[in-house]
Computed example of a mutant assay.
Amino acid sequence: YPAVTALAGGIPVFIPTGKNNFKLTARELESHCDKKTKAIILNYPVNPTGVSYTKKELEAIKAAALRHNLTVVADEVYDELTYDFDHIPFASLSGARKNTLYLNGFSKAYAMTGWRVGYVCGTPEVIAAMTKIHQYTIMCVSITAQMAACEALVSGRSAVMQMKREYLRRREFVMAGLKEIGLECVNAQGAFYAFASIKSTSLSSMDFCQRLLKEQKVAVVPGTAFGKSGEGYIRISYASSLDNLKEALRRIEVFLGRFKGKARTDE
């Protein structure tokens, strides 16, 4: 997001959300707005934290966005993988449609990552401008991928629900497992990620990930890959088998044994 914003001539402004369980609030949004603010990028369920928003929370964000006449770029690609409440598309909120640019795709809900099929909905003016750029850079998604996406829409609903149930089972296992080995983690309400705090160790996010990979052969992503506010956290994907997750948690626990009783020196 920061790179494409800069390429479009914009200035990205980051809003820290760590103190609010990594959720954006209307108050925080408005405190970062000025006369030059044009848009907000809202991804939910969120990669990497897994948090999402209830209708009440979205209504508050919508009200703030409309007060400042912002375009809300709603990245909802994990919408089908929402566990604790129904996913509410931002554009479905009363009065939000004309201010929403809705992004979605088939990579997550239909497990079609390699097919690279996505779509966007917005006002005719915005879509026309996007099409001018798109047709001279990408042309279109391959016909094979388009046909596969159509088949997924027609016949894939039961598979999506089955996958969602399995991800929920894995979420429960991973969340409980992280707590058991002493890693705090914000509740993942959607997607298939756990964002665990490693602040109880003396390591940075990058050092933790590199050492865990080298010493225990477990791959996780440093929180700093998603911005400087991710320091002190790691992202764990539970898009793997339950057996693999069990073994990964066991190895992480072994690795953490090296740091028991230690605290971060920068706190």
Rank of each mutant, 00 (worst) to 15 (best):
Tyr1Met: 10
Tyr1Asn: 09
Pro2Phe: 00
Val4Asn: 13
Val4Gln: 14
Thr5His: 06
Thr5Ala: 14
Thr5Lys: 06
Ala6Glu: 15
Leu7Thr: 13
Ala8Phe: 04
Ala8Asp: 05
Gly10Arg: 07
Pro12Gly: 04
Val13Ala: 03
Phe14Asn: 03
Ile15Gly: 01
Pro16Val: 02
Thr17Asp: 01
Gly18Arg: 07
Gly18Phe: 03
Gly18Asp: 09
Lys19Val: 01
Leu24Ile: 05
Arg27Glu: 15
Arg27Leu: 12
Leu29Asp: 03
His32Asn: 14
Cys33Ser: 04
Cys33Gln: 02
Lys35Gly: 06
Lys36Gly: 05
Ala39Asp: 09
Ile40Gln: 03
Tyr44His: 07
Pro45Leu: 01
Asn47Met: 03
Pro48Trp: 06
Gly50Ser: 08
Tyr53Met: 00
Tyr53Val: 00
Thr54Gln: 02
Lys55Leu: 02
Glu57Gln: 12
Glu59Arg: 01
Ala60His: 00
Ile61Thr: 02
Ala65Thr: 06
Leu70Lys: 11
Leu70Val: 09
Leu70Arg: 09
Val72Thr: 04
Ala74Thr: 11
Asp75Ile: 06
Glu76Met: 10
Glu76Lys: 01
Tyr78Ser: 09
Asp79Phe: 09
Leu81Ile: 06
Leu81Gln: 11
Tyr83Lys: 08
His87Gly: 02
Ile88His: 04
Phe90Leu: 03
Ser92Trp: 04
Ser92Leu: 02
Leu93Ala: 03
Leu93Tyr: 01
Ser94Pro: 00
Thr100Arg: 11
Leu101Val: 11
Leu101Asn: 03
Gly105Trp: 08
Phe106Met: 15
Ser107Thr: 06
Ala109His: 01
Met112Lys: 05
Arg116Lys: 15
Arg116Ile: 06
Arg116Phe: 10
Val117Ala: 13
Tyr119Cys: 02
Gly122His: 06
Pro124Ala: 11
Pro124His: 12
Met130Leu: 15
His134Ala: 12
Thr137Glu: 10
Cys140Leu: 05
Val141His: 01
Ile143Gly: 00
Gln146Lys: 13
Glu151Val: 02
Ala152Ser: 07
Leu153Asp: 01
Val154Cys: 07
Gly156His: 01
Arg157Ala: 04
Ala159Leu: 09
Ala159Val: 05
Lys164Cys: 06
Glu166Phe: 03
Arg170Ile: 07
Arg170Tyr: 10
Glu172Lys: 15
Glu172Leu: 14
Phe173Leu: 14
Ala176Gln: 15
Lys179Arg: 15
Glu180Val: 03
Ile181Ala: 07
Gly182Leu: 09
Leu183Glu: 12
Leu183His: 12
Glu184Gly: 12
Cys185Gln: 14
Gln189Phe: 10
Gln189Glu: 15
Ala191Trp: 00
Ala191Gln: 01
Phe192Tyr: 15
Tyr193Ser: 06
Tyr193Gln: 03
Ala194Tyr: 03
Ala196Val: 12
Ser197Thr: 08
Ile198Tyr: 13
Ile198Val: 15
Lys199Leu: 13
Leu212Trp: 08
Leu212Pro: 08
Glu215His: 13
Val220Cys: 13
Val221Ser: 12
Val221Asp: 11
Phe226Arg: 08
Ser229Gly: 12
Gly230Ser: 09
Glu231Ser: 10
Gly232Asn: 10
Gly232His: 09
Tyr238Met: 03
Ala239Lys: 13
Ala239Ile: 02
Leu242Phe: 00
Ala248Phe: 05
Glu253Met: 02
Glu253Arg: 14
Phe255Pro: 11
Arg258Cys: 11
Glu267Trp: 10
Glu267Cys: 03
